[in-house]
Design a protein around this nucleic acid. Structure first.
Lengths: 224, 224
DNA sequence: TGAAATTTTGCAATGGGTGAAAAAATAAAG
DNA sequence: CTTTATTTTTTCACCCATTGCAAAATTTCA
């Protein structure tokens, strides 16, 4: 019952290697032949294990695509828990949004940048993955809402924390999705995300009477 | 290519009857034995058709649960298109939220109230259905955002419309979900939805400095 | 009624997923 | 270095959802 880092017995090390082998074989095949056209048998063969063994590492084909999701969520939860002294809720939430893009940019220890791109492409084309992705996103939001309420219980009750997280991510997600045609540079997506976040933070009410006086010229916070 | 109401040839009528039979057999079995434990063979047998025929009526098991989803979305789109003269965007969006509850309450022509409850229960317990439900919800939001932009192109650009719809539904969805334990009366859920909608409309920023002066005492609009 | 269009059905096959027991690998003891 | 206990992997035999295809049944229309 230890974390995965300290290399315990040969048993654990071998399991980690098999897990990686399965992930890498799968992603390689997905990139080559597409998600649907890749069979579990092929993936298992690529990792040199039996098809049955696959299911003792993953609960299904989909899990391969989202193998690093849990880690991402956990980093986000840590960010919330590490709220800086005096930091406003709005500032904290904005940091939360940007953190996601930083992670995608960083190419962390386990996840390469091409992998992130491949995942995006797969999710956009496979309905099954879309459903799973949304489920994951929604589950993360529930956990983030709880965490947010816990770091500022005096400022937000549970409902308010949930509404805040839901509104923020809901705005960002839908705005990004509607503008996904054509350019997909991380930069431009982040700009869209920030504008959407700004709208959620300012309130939809402010959208009404501002045909002339456009308050939200740029993403609130550091105007570039 | 006509609507379903005018009874055309016997062929069309029979198809409609078979479709209903499949839906009703399925929902009955789902209620009795659960979603996962009900096989397509049983459903088809219950509707007195072959298993193969099922697939000429639905694309899969999941579609049975969401058979009326399209109609719901269309009514929502009509509501947006029928924006009343002089109605503010906020008022329109609030009507949109309430409309959903009205529909659930009405027990429209095709969908009974028990059916709505069953669906809710199924979705809460079956991950596959959760994914599908979110996919549907997200797809509806995309269409609603487009429709919203079209009824007020001068007030909201595409990004703003998307952010508005996303924030509103995101807030409502997450708030409702976090408070789903225990009582599940439509009334109480609607109250929660309205509070969340109010938060999204007012903006998350207003949540910050209001530890004492609680502005959002009740759901905005008609205070009971 | 009889031919044409359409729908239903049966059948076989693919692929994801599960249960259970045999077989292999590894850890712990002696 | 054996023996033994524990864990993993494999094999095998299933179930079920889903799809393609061609035969059979049904409806439409002339």
């Amino acid at each position: 019952m230890q974390y995965s880092s300290p290399m315990a017995g040969l048993r654990e090390r071998k399991k980690q290697r098999t897990r990686r082998a399965l992930i890498e074989a799968a992603l390689r095949l997905f990139a080559e032949k597409g998600y649907a056209d890749t069979t579990l048998a092929e993936i298992a063969a690529g990792a040199e294990v039996s098809t049955r063994t696959f299911f003792s590492y993953f609960n299904g084909k989909e899990d391969l695509v989202f193998h690093d999701a849990e880690g991402r969520v956990e980093r986000a939860l840590e960010l919330l828990a590490g709220r800086r002294p005096g930091e406003s809720v709005v500032a904290l939430l904005l940091r939360l949004i940007d953190e996601g893009f930083e992670q995608a940019r960083e190419s962390g220890e386990l996840v390469t940048f091409e992998e992130a791109e491949l995942r995006m492409r797969l999710i956009m084309t496979e309905p099954a993955l879309q459903g799973r992705a949304l489920l994951l996103l929604y589950d993360s939001q529930l956990r983030l809402a709880r965490a947010l309420h816990e770091v500022c219980p005096d400022e937000l009750d549970e409902l308010e924390a949930a509404a805040a997280v839901g509104a923020l991510f809901g705005a960002v997600k839908l705005a990004v999705m509607t503008h996904l045609c054509g350019d997909r540079s991380l930069q431009r997506i982040q700009v869209i995300a920030r504008r959407a976040a700004g709208i959620a933070l300012e309130g939809l009410r402010t959208l009404e009477t501002r045909a002339v006086a456009r308050i939200h010229a740029g993403p609130p916070g550091m105007a570039s």
